[in-house]
């Protein structure tokens, strides 16, 4: 089941909200900032958000 997750772009550092289900087929993640558009997107784990 997909859960609301915070994603972080490892190129520009931008953090954004999205949904992630580790068991579902992966989708191509892209940084939403138009000037970045990097694919180095990391779903942040709960403990890292705190």
């Amino acid at each position: 089941m997909s859960v609301a997750t915070k994603f972080k772009c490892l190129r520009c550092g931008h953090e954004f909200d999205g949904h992630y289900d580790p068991k579902a087929p992966l989708v191509e993640w892209t940084c939403p900032l138009p000037e970045c558009k990097s694919n180095s997107i990391r779903p942040m784990k709960e403990k890292k958000r705190e």
């Binding site: 490892l10 190129r11 550092g13 694919n39 180095s40």
Partner: peptide, 18 residues
Amino acid sequence: WDKLEKLGIRPERLQLEW
């Protein structure tokens, strides 16, 4: 990325691009 972070290496140093 998890492993690098655990070892104290900035994950940002590994980039992924399509």
